[in-house]
Structure formats: C-alpha cells, structure tokens
Design a protein around this nucleic acid. Structure first.
Lengths: 134, 134
DNA sequence: TGCATAGTTGCACTATAGTGCAACTGTTAA
DNA sequence: TTAACAGTTGCACTATAGTGCAACTATGCA
C-alpha cells in the first residue's frame, strides 16, 4: 500500500509544503491516529480536492498508508523504516509561531468527537467548523 | 550571520534537493566540521557556482553559518534552535542505497588531509579527486 | 601593480510543483 | 434504481526552483 522513497530527498520534499506539513503535524501529534479526508477537510479548512492531492503525494513518498472502508478512505502515518519515526520526532519538535497547528488540532479534536465506534459517520461539515472557530 | 526560518516547511524545503542533502550529510557525519567551498567542490565533484548557490539557500534557511577567512569562506552547520539537532539526527539516520554519501565522505576525508593547522591551503583539486575515486 | 584564484551572481532557459474548476468514479441508503 | 456524497483526477494556468554560462568581486602573492 506504500512505497519506499528511492531518493532520500523525497522524504523532505514531501514535508516541504505548508499544507502537507499541517496534515502530518496533525496526525503525528495524535499518536498516529487515522483520519479520513472529510475529517481533514474540516480540520484544515481546505478544499477536498486540494487535500486529496497532497495526501497522494505523502502516500507516494512513503509517509502515509491509506485504505478504503465503505465510502471513507482512512489515512495513517507509516512508521517504517525506522528513520521515519526520527522524522516525525523532528516534526513534533517544530515551533508554531503563528499558532496554525494549534488551531488545526483544536478543530481536529472537535471533529473527532463526531465519530461513532471509532469510525467517521458524517461528511464535510466545514461551514460549522469555520464559523465555530473563526 | 543566519536567520531563523519563519515557516517550518522552509527547513524541509532546504533539504529537499539532492545536492543540498549531500552537503548536509557530509557535514553532519563529520560532527559539524567546517568546510570551505573548494573542499566541498572536491568532495561532491560539482561545479563551484552550483554549490555556492546551494550553500546560500541553506544559509537563508538557517541551517548554515558562513564566515570569511582570507580568501576562503568556511561553512558550518547551525545547531540552534534545538529542533535542528533533531533534524540532523534524521539526516544521519537516512539510508544510502546508492552509496553516494559514502563516496562523498571518502573524498571529503581525503581532501581534509590537505589542510594545515586546520585551514584550507589549496584550491580546487577536482581533477585529482575525480581520477582517484572514479 | 598585476595576476591567479576563491567565491558570487545576473541572465536565459527548462522543468516541475501547486492551484482551482469541473468532471469523473464508487459506494451507501432511500 | 437513483440521488447524495466521499473522494479522485484531467486540464489549464501560474509561480518558482535548479541549471549552465559567463561576467563579476575580493583577496593574497609574485
């Protein structure tokens, strides 16, 4: 379901984009919780087509594994080979001067409360999350 | 002499290029040894104008500090803020399937033996290093 | 003083990355 | 069986990154 990057720089390339870094930071802080696209859309407040493309890039770089479950596709951070854990530790250690990740994480928590039996049950709720958190 | 990246992804962007990753890997393996441009030219076997540009990018990203000494400019990895050390640990942990860093490092060692009193004394010797190591 | 050389940079060129729109696939539930 | 919706993707567009050449600056030494 995922491939190992042949060139090491691809791993850094994968994180060299604000949107992708937001995705990874969200998932790394949450102890490698899985998330589906609509949950990410509501957390980052970005259009689904945009996040879908960035998720594909992360997947191709070997950082993300995805699997379909009904009409939802769940994404999870890959932790092998071992240097990926080291990479996530770096991501975790990054500063957050503009409080972007803090805000993303708050929305993510709120959104995850809508789950039932650990599964996503609702679709995109962006409008609600947008008005709720400014 | 160096600035802190405002956006976290700039740090990863800095390493998202093979040449820059080769530079950083060389310097990180050598316990943060300093190196001048001509020593890097002989180690990586890349033209000086190319490396000079990549060094400038690393400097702007806050990973490298440079200072002039006579006609040589010495470069050294920056280790603050703390998450940079974490980043270097990741770089150190990367695999080297194509043995590129291994070869770079060998030439770097050979080249560093030409120093006197810890200073570079000779200019670009690429031809010698090229023929020596294939 | 003038030449050799360590290092930098302007310019032109090419390749690739990120974006938005809109059309598309696939799955669930009425 | 069909409507709604989670998710993906082709297309056109724009911006930016990396490269090579050649000209440039700055320093040390004959």
């Amino acid at each position: 379901m995922h491939s190992i990057a042949v060139h090491s720089e691809e791993v850094f390339q994968a994180l060299a984009d604000e949107t992708r870094l937001r995705i990874v930071r969200l998932m790394v802080v949450e102890a490698h919780e899985r998330a589906c696209l609509c949950e990410l859309v509501d957390s980052l407040l970005e259009p689904s087509y945009k996040l879908s493309r960035h998720l594909a890039i992360l997947r191709r770089a070997g950082l993300l594994a995805s699997h379909k479950e009904g009409r939802w596709v769940y994404h999870r951070l890959v932790t092998k080979p071992a240097y990926l854990k080291q990479l996530y530790a770096t991501v975790k250690a990054l500063p957050d001067p503009r409080k972007i990740y803090r805000a993303d994480l708050k929305r993510f928590h709120d959104r995850m409360r809508l789950r039932e039996d650990g599964r996503c049950q609702v679709g995109i709720q962006s409008d609600a999350f947008r008005s709720e958190t400014g």
